[in-house]
């Protein structure tokens, strides 16, 4: 099969080992179409299902082998189910204007897809046509997941090592981003200040408040809130005498009785339910 829904089906071969047979991995590739960042989009290919742990270097090797003249410039990949809509910095700050540049300049990809950016438009077209040719041929490219990288055990140790940050670089980075933040903040405060001084037609000025939210929505009802309620209720009760008039007493008793009866009926219902579940079999 060569095409699925406008995507070229591009198989690559995965070498056998002592535990498994040869296998084929299928990429689904077509020319990238996007209105955002048009220039870049025009020299990119869109890949659905890139091979496992695909990196710039492995994809470069692949295109080098089938279209040696098409130089790959960059690779954008989403293979860890990243959600681009979740940006904690933006969500927690009001220093960004949402309407300005949408959600930043990042490429937004669905999970399990990638974009290969070539140096220019022609390189891209060439790569695509070579790909089609490659698909018709019999020779399959043998994909190596880890490329030329070293043994896994060493790679993993390196991954641990990579988590350690160099103090100098970190310190530089921190001060840079804090400067940026301060700049943004200063600008925003300035704007805010302007707003505050602005008196509208009715003679009001704008009041700017912070938006806060309680935990309640997520964590269900906390006892803290019910406690507050209790205290309030108690205060109210203290103010008026509840058993002064005869009707009050009667009312209270009636309420109690109804409550009792309601509970009783609920209990009967529950027992019925439990009985149906055969809970009353002691052995």
């Amino acid at each position: 099969m060569e095409e699925v829904k406008g995507f070229s089906v591009v198989p690559v071969e995965l070498a056998q080992s002592q535990w498994n047979k040869k296998a084929r991995h299928y990429m689904f590739i077509k020319k990238h179409q996007s209105n955002a960042m048009k220039e870049m989009a025009e020299r990119s290919l869109f890949i659905v299902n890139p091979p496992f742990a695909c990196t710039l270097s492995t994809i470069r090797q692949f295109f080098k082998s089938i279209a040696s003249n098409s130089l790959v410039e960059n690779l954008f990949i989403n293979d860890e189910d990243l959600d681009y809509d979740i940006n904690l910095t933006r969500l927690t700050s009001d220093l960004y204007d949402d309407d300005k540049d949408g959600q930043g300049s990042l490429v937004r990809l669905p999970n399990g897809t990638a974009i290969v950016v070539f140096v220019d438009k022609s390189a891209c077209s060439l790569a695509m046509s070579k790909l089609k040719k490659y698909c018709k041929g019999d020779e399959l490219y043998s994909w190596r997941v880890c490329g030329d990288e070293t043994a896994t055990s060493i790679r993993m140790a390196k991954a641990y090592r990579d988590r350690v940050l160099s103090p100098e670089e970190t310190s530089a980075e921190v001060s840079l981003s804090l400067q940026e933040f301060e700049k943004r903040e200063a600008k925003s405060i300035e704007e805010l200040g302007e707003m505050k001084t602005l008196v509208d037609e009715d003679g009001f000025t704008m009041v700017v408040g912070k938006n806060r939210k309680t935990k309640r929505g997520i964590l269900g009802k906390m006892s803290g809130t019910s406690k507050v309620k209790e205290i309030e209720d108690k205060k109210l009760k203290r103010k008026e005498k509840a058993d002064f008039y005869r009707f009050q007493i009667r009312e209270k008793k009636k309420l109690e009785m109804n409550e009792l009866l309601k509970k009783f009926r609920d209990d009967q219902e529950r027992i019925k339910e439990l009985k149906e579940k055969k809970r009353f079999r002691p052995y």
């Binding site: 070498a15 299928y26 997941v145 896994t152 790679r155």
Partner: peptide, 11 residues
């Protein structure tokens, strides 16, 4: 393919 890739990755 998933098996082959996992095996290659785990090296």
């Amino acid at each position: 393919a998933i098996f082959a890739e996992i095996l290659q990755y785990a090296g």
